[in-house]
């Protein structure tokens, strides 16, 4: 069941678009915002509102990068793996993060705190390497800065 808040926000989005389907991506993001990811039930309930079948909505949901169809940690780290960041030391940053969190790309830390995902160019090429945690962008990353950041998000290790 969609929560009242979810339903309310989705209704608002529906007004922005010419067709119900067009509001789909935005609506998926609404569900994701409240649940962290989009579960099967979310797909079913939402597809009914959008006049789509679950198969149709899921075809859209699974296309896009930032719709999570599997559970993610409390915080999602999107680490830019594209050229400028790569040149500026992405690999070092990544291996530091992996060591700290004990996980690889696409995984969630055992404490459920972080999910680590690669992302194409974050548009911070002049401040590379860069990453996002949830909705915040961080740049000019160094191993020290990363330690400080993940601590800020609750890392205790």
């Amino acid at each position: 069941m969609l929560s009242e808040k979810e339903t309310h926000e989705i209704e608002k989005e529906l007004k922005q678009y010419k067709t119900r389907q067009a509001a789909g991506v935005e609506a998926l993001k609404i569900i994701q915002r409240s649940r962290g990811w989009v579960d099967d039930e979310g797909i079913k309930d939402l597809s009914a509102i959008l006049g789509m079948t679950p198969d149709e909505l899921d075809g859209v949901a699974t296309f896009y990068n930032l719709i999570f169809r599997k559970p993610v940690g409390a915080h999602v780290i999107l680490i830019c793996d594209t050229v400028s960041c790569w040149v500026m030391g992405y690999e070092k940053i990544l291996s530091h993060l992996k060591n700290r969190l004990g996980i690889g790309l696409g995984e969630t830390s055992p404490d459920g705190l972080f999910t680590l995902l690669p992302i194409p160019c974050l548009g911070a090429c002049d401040k590379a390497p860069a990453m996002m945690i949830d909705e915040e962008l961080y740049w000019n990353l160094t191993p020290e800065k990363i330690d400080e950041l993940i601590k800020r998000y609750g890392w205790k290790g």
């Binding site: 594209t82 400028s84 194409p120 160019c121 548009g123 911070a124 090429c125 002049d126």
Partner: peptide, 11 residues
Amino acid sequence: DEMEPGTFKDK
């Protein structure tokens, strides 16, 4: 939609 690697002008 600026996602071309190395591009950050529209932002």
